[in-house]
Simulated assay, not measured.
Amino acid sequence: MLHKCMFSGSGGQGSALMAKMVCLGAIKENLKVVMTQTYGIEQRGGDSTAYVIVSDVPIGSPIVENDANIAVALSQSIYDNCFEAVVPGGKLFTNSSMVEAPKEAKGFDQVLLPVSDKAVELGTVRCANMVMLGAVIAGTHLLKLETVEEVVRETLGTKKPQLVELNIGAVRAGYDAVKKGSRQ
């Protein structure tokens, strides 16, 4: 098993946090994992991508270069890069709340999900990344849902305990949306 992932968005959307949670979940599931990041010079607003490789065997190189089998585009500004990076047979998870004109995918699946809108329904757009994380887990079986929920509890529980249930609810909302086939 080898998954090359890219989690992309504009600064402040939480793409790096999604990647970190995947890394922590992979460790909990006794998988091999490596993460690298790129980001614009701005702290908020610039494009940011976190690359994660998850495998059940040792990872030879930490590089994901236009060969992701799992990609996430949270914003319009990074969408084209993600679209071009998905390999045949891969999946691109697109935030249709922010990506106004998604392209037609050929050779790979594109899951269009209005994660920002769903997050607002849950109480705050700031949990859109967790809605997307749930969608990715449901659509790829990269990790177990229970593992991701445990990582959310551990990661947010010490710093922001008041946000734990909101974020777990967001993960479940994204997971359920994909499991029920809700692709908009």
Rank of each mutant, 00 (worst) to 15 (best):
P161G: 13
A138C: 10
K106A: 13
T36N: 07
V54K: 01
V111C: 13
D67K: 13
M18T: 06
A73R: 02
I59T: 11
V99K: 05
K144F: 06
P58H: 10
L166Q: 08
A105E: 05
V99I: 15
E165N: 14
S97D: 00
L17Q: 04
V111A: 07
V86T: 03
G181C: 10
L163W: 04
V99D: 03
S77L: 11
S97M: 02
T147H: 01
C23D: 10
A119F: 14
A19G: 12
G11F: 03
L2T: 11
G25I: 08
S10I: 11
F108C: 01
V111Q: 07
K32P: 00
K159L: 13
A177F: 08
C82E: 09
E42Y: 07
K160T: 10
A138D: 05
A101R: 15
N30F: 08
C5Y: 01
L145K: 14
R126G: 09
E154V: 02
S96Y: 06
A173M: 07
L166K: 09
M98D: 04
K91T: 14
A177W: 06
N30Y: 11
L143C: 09
K103L: 14
V72R: 00
K159Q: 13
S75T: 13
V136M: 13
K106S: 12
F83K: 11
V164S: 00
G45P: 06
E149D: 10
A50Q: 06
L163Q: 09
N95M: 08
G123V: 07
G139D: 05
E154A: 12
P88E: 12
K103R: 14
K103T: 08
Y39C: 06
V164C: 03
N129V: 11
A71S: 13
S61Q: 14
E149S: 03
I168Q: 04
Q184M: 13
A85N: 09
N69R: 01
E104T: 15
P88R: 08
T155D: 01
E146T: 04
A71G: 13
G9Q: 03
L145A: 06
D47Y: 04
P161E: 12
T158A: 08
F108P: 00
A50Y: 08
R172A: 01
K118I: 15
A16M: 14
N129M: 12
M18H: 02
T38N: 05
A170V: 03
V87D: 05
E104A: 11
V87C: 05
M6W: 00
V125R: 15
Q162N: 10
V152Y: 01
A68T: 04
V131N: 05
L142S: 01
A73C: 10
N69S: 10
V22P: 00
G14I: 03
V178W: 12
G14W: 01
T49C: 10
L143H: 09
S61M: 14
E42R: 14
R126F: 15
V178G: 07
P161H: 11
R172L: 12
M130R: 00
G12H: 04
S182I: 13
T155Q: 05
A119T: 08
M98P: 00
T38F: 04
V125M: 14
V136W: 05
P161I: 15
L142F: 07
K118P: 00
V120R: 11
I27Y: 08
G134P: 05
S10V: 15
G90D: 05
L112E: 12
D176K: 12
F93Y: 14
Y39G: 02
P102D: 10
V164H: 00
F83W: 12
T36Y: 07
V164I: 09
I59S: 06
A26M: 07
